[in-house]
Amino acid sequence: MTAYTVYLEQLHAMLAAWSKEHQVYVPTAVEGGYFDFKPWREGVEIAFDYDLAYNTLKRYFLPPKEDLVVFDLAAKTAEMVFDAPKQLLFGVHPYDIRGINQLDQIMETGAPDQYYLHRRDATVVFGLTPMRVAETAFWSSMGAGEVDRGFDLFWTKTGPSTFLVEVGSMRGEKMLLAAGELTPASAGAREAARKAHLKIMEMGRSNALNFDWKQVPRLLDKCWNSPLWQKKAELCLACGSCNLVCPTCYCFDIREEADELLQKGVRFREWDGCMLTSFALVAGEHNFRAKALERYRHRYMRKGKYIYDRYGELGCIGCGRCVRACTTNIANPREVFNTLWEASQHED
């Protein structure tokens, strides 16, 4: 990969230049010791060492609410609506890029989701090697610590004011070099970036899956009747927080509204979650997953098996957001998979 060395003092001018065409979002400290992506403006401090963005970045491609079709109710006609603002996400961690890549795959499969693809295409992604690991994260053991596609540039902080910037796309390189030529990265700089990466992977291992993540799908094959599901589900509030914060949860509801005069209407989609009781509820009050156990199990089966069986990768990238979001402390794929693994070892 082509790589350049960039100095911190060059970055500011770059951000200002990128902001002319794109809405730039950067990781920044928010209340409670957390971090989140916010619009970059003059004076916004970038948290290069953020551990985890509180909210998932899927909102930039799959907004919580998105219009699909507008109606003229008098003429009974419908028209599609697309909105895809030009945006730049600066500082996305590898596991989150993995999450985005997975959504890409899902949205491109079958009938391509043009709404998602429009937004994705209009979004520039600049990756960043993490410098800290969130307490709840376990991506390092989920095969999600590395990423080789899905970004335009990839940044690694190699010194107090130096970055190694790897090129992921022509679009990225053009944006990087817009203000003038840069020094190609030396072998030493590349080595420093490699070390930074190894260091963070090592740090990530303190909170890990106890076995090879590739075993998860076959493990779950045997766990349909595990008592764990009921034990956990008993405490579930069906609040759907674990769905909302998850970068790879993408399910949505479709609804519509009409104005008071019944002239115009709009059909939109809105995030939904399989942990909500209404998710599989149909007219006539029949619920295809009425029990908390069924909903809880379904979510973990999707994360550990169903997605894998369809797309060849786990549906959980180990970001640890759901672990943080669950008020009753039951949302925790690492713990669930480890417990099931432990139990399966005693069976054989």
């Binding site: 599609m80 491109e108 989701d113 043009q114 693809l117």
Partner: peptide, 10 residues
């Protein structure tokens, strides 16, 4: 990625 001005929801 193939981007088309087309909506499967229309």
């Amino acid at each position: 990625m193939k981007i088309k001005e087309f909506s499967a929801y229309l």
